[in-house]
Design a protein around this nucleic acid. Structure first.
Lengths: 273, 273
DNA sequence: AAAATCAGGTGCAGCTAGCGCAACAATAGC
DNA sequence: GCTATTGTTGCGCTAGCTGCACCTGATTTT
C-alpha cells in the first residue's frame, strides 16, 4: 500500500546488496566468507532468492564459494575488471583536476606513476604559456622528477635506498651522501602531504607534487605542477598546499574513503563545464 | 533457435557483458569511455536496454558517466568492492616483494593465480624499460604463462594432462608429445622450487617463476619475472633462486609456517571431481 | 541409536519487471 | 536552416523472478 513505485532494476539492487554484504565490515576477520542463510537474514530476503542469485553471481565470477565451507566471498572477476581499467580511469578522472591546477597557477600540471625505478608521466596539461614540452609516455629517473618524492613517500626506507642505488649507476658518490637527505625529504613530504623540489638537475624541473591514493589507500600516482618562474619558498609551500588538497580530492573521486572509513557518500568529480 | 531454456539470470548476464566492455582491453585507447550505442552494437543488444541498464548501474555506482562526453566508464563502487576481495589482500601483501624483484632485475614482475585453465595476472610491476601493456586482470592459457608451471607444479599428473588437453584446441598434436615434457618440467620445478621457461610461443614471454603458498602450504599463486634479454642458462637459474626465495618470504608473510612445507597431500584434495 | 535442527537447494503458480519496437528528444554535422 | 546520429521514453507482451512449501543432507540433541 505504501511504496512499491521506484523498483526498477530490482535484480541489480539485490545483487549489489549481496555484494555489499560480502564486502563485509571491512575487517579481515571474515576471511571465510558468509553462508546463504546468514546473508538472507541480514538482507531480509528469501533464502531461495539469495541462493539463486549467488549461484548466478558465482557463474559470472563475481563471487566465489569455498569448496569445503560452502561460504561465499567476493570473486576474482571484480578484481579483474577493476585492475584492467584502473589506469584508464585514473587518467580520466584526474584530467579535470589537473586542468584546474594548470589554470590556477598557469603552470604545467602532470599526472605521474612509478614504473620500475623511473617516473612515467601519464598525462600532462599545458599552461597557457609558451612551449609545452610533451612528457606523456616519457619516463625519467625518480630523483629527477618532481613527482618522485611523492610517489616514494611511504616506501620503506630500505627499499628506497635499494631503488636509489639501482638508479644511480654508481659513479655518483655524491649520491651516496644524499641518500640520507633524500630519506629526510621523503619524511618531510609524508608529514606535509606534499613535496617541493627545486631545481636539482640541469634540466630537471622544479615543482611541487602530492600523492594520489587509490581506493585502497595506496599511493598509486602523483600529481605535480612545474615551477618555471622564480618563486620564494613560501610561495612554493602555498602551491604545495593547494596541490595536496587537489590530490586528496582526486583520491576521493577514485574511491578512497574520505577519512579512512568504509565507502560512503558521493565522490562527485567537478564536472567540467 | 529452439533453445531459450537456459536463460536464468539474464539481467546479470547483460550487466556483466556491459561491465566487461567498459573494462576494455587494458589498452589505453579506451580511456574516453564508451557510448550507449557503441556498447549496444558491440553486444548485439537493444539500445534502450543498454541505456536503462547503464542508468541502473550508475545508480549503484558500478559505472559512472562523464558529464560532458556522456560516455560511461566503470565506477567507484566496483573499485571499492574489488579492494575488498580476497585477491586484493594478496596483492597488497605481495606488492613490495614484486617491486623488489622488479628493481633488482629491472624486469617486469608478476603475481598470478590459476583461474580455471587459465592464468590470471593479479599484479604486474613494470620495469623501467620500454612500454609494456597492462596485464593486470588479463588471463592467458596456462601453457603460455611463465607462472603456469609453478602453479601446476604440485598437481596430480592426470589432472594436469586433462587440463592441458582441455586447453589445447586439439589441432596441436605436437602438444600431445610435449605433455610428457611438461610433466617432467613440473617435476623439476617441484624439486628446484622454481620454474624456468624459455620462449615457447611467439608472443609467450620467457620467464622464471616460483610458487606462493597459503597458510596451509597449498600453492595458491605464483610470482614470475619476465626475461626480455638474452641470458645464459646459469643466469636464469640464478634468477630462479632469487625468485624462489622471494616467493618463500611472501608465503611466510601470508601465514605459512616458516618451517619447510607442512605440505599438502592432506585430507583435503584440491578438488575431488 | 533415532529424531530434531539447521543450511542449502528445487518445483511451481502467479504476477511483476524487463524486453523490444518505435516514436521522441537532444546533439552533432553540413 | 535541415539532416544524421545518439540517447531516452511509452507501452503491450511475455520471460523470468518472487515466495511459499517441500526436499535433501549434514550436524547436533537426548
Amino acid at each position: 500500500m505504501s511504496d512499491k513505485p521506484p523498483a526498477p532494476s530490482a535484480g541489480l539492487r539485490r545483487d549489489m546488496e549481496i555484494l555489499e554484504v560480502l564486502a563485509g565490515h571491512g575487517d579481515d576477520r571474515d576471511t571465510d566468507g558468509f553462508g546463504v542463510s546468514w546473508i538472507a537474514q541480514r538482507l531480509g530476503r528469501e533464502k531461495s532468492q539469495v541462493s539463486r542469485a549467488l549461484r548466478a553471481l558465482e557463474l559470472e565470477g563475481m563471487v566465489e564459494r569455498d569448496a569445503v565451507t560452502r561460504r561465499y566471498r567476493l570473486g576474482w572477476r571484480l578484481f579483474a575488471l577493476a585492475a584492467r581499467s584502473q589506469q584508464a580511469r585514473l587518467v580520466q578522472v584526474a584530467a579535470p583536476y589537473l586542468r584546474r591546477l594548470a589554470t590556477a597557477f598557469d603552470e604545467d600540471a602532470y599526472l605521474c606513476v612509478l614504473r620500475g625505478n623511473r617516473v612515467l608521466t601519464l598525462l600532462s596539461v599545458p599552461s597557457s604559456r609558451a612551449y609545452h614540452r610533451v612528457w606523456e609516455g616519457i619516463t625519467v629517473p625518480v630523483i629527477m622528477a618532481a613527482a618522485g618524492r611523492s610517489l616514494l613517500s611511504e616506501w620503506d626506507g630500505e627499499r628506497v635506498r635499494e631503488l636509489l642505488r639501482a638508479t644511480l649507476p654508481s659513479g655518483l658518490d655524491s649520491a651516496v651522501g644524499s641518500e640520507d637527505d633524500w630519506l629526510a625529504e621523503l619524511a618531510h613530504a609524508r608529514t606535509a602531504g606534499y613535496a617541493v623540489s627545486d631545481v636539482e638537475l640541469d634540466d630537471g624541473a622544479a615543482g611541487v607534487s602530492a600523492p594520489v591514493r587509490d581506493h585502497r589507500g595506496i599511493i598509486t600516482a602523483a600529481i605535480s605542477v612545474s615551477v618555471t618562474r622564480a618563486a620564494p619558498p613560501e610561495r612554493l609551500h602555498e602551491m604545495g598546499a593547494v596541490v595536496a588538497e587537489t590530490a586528496r580530492e582526486l583520491s576521493t573521486a577514485l574511491g578512497l574513503p574520505p577519512s579512512g572509513h568504509p565507502v560512503a557518500a558521493c565522490p562527485e568529480p567537478p564536472g567540467a563545464d
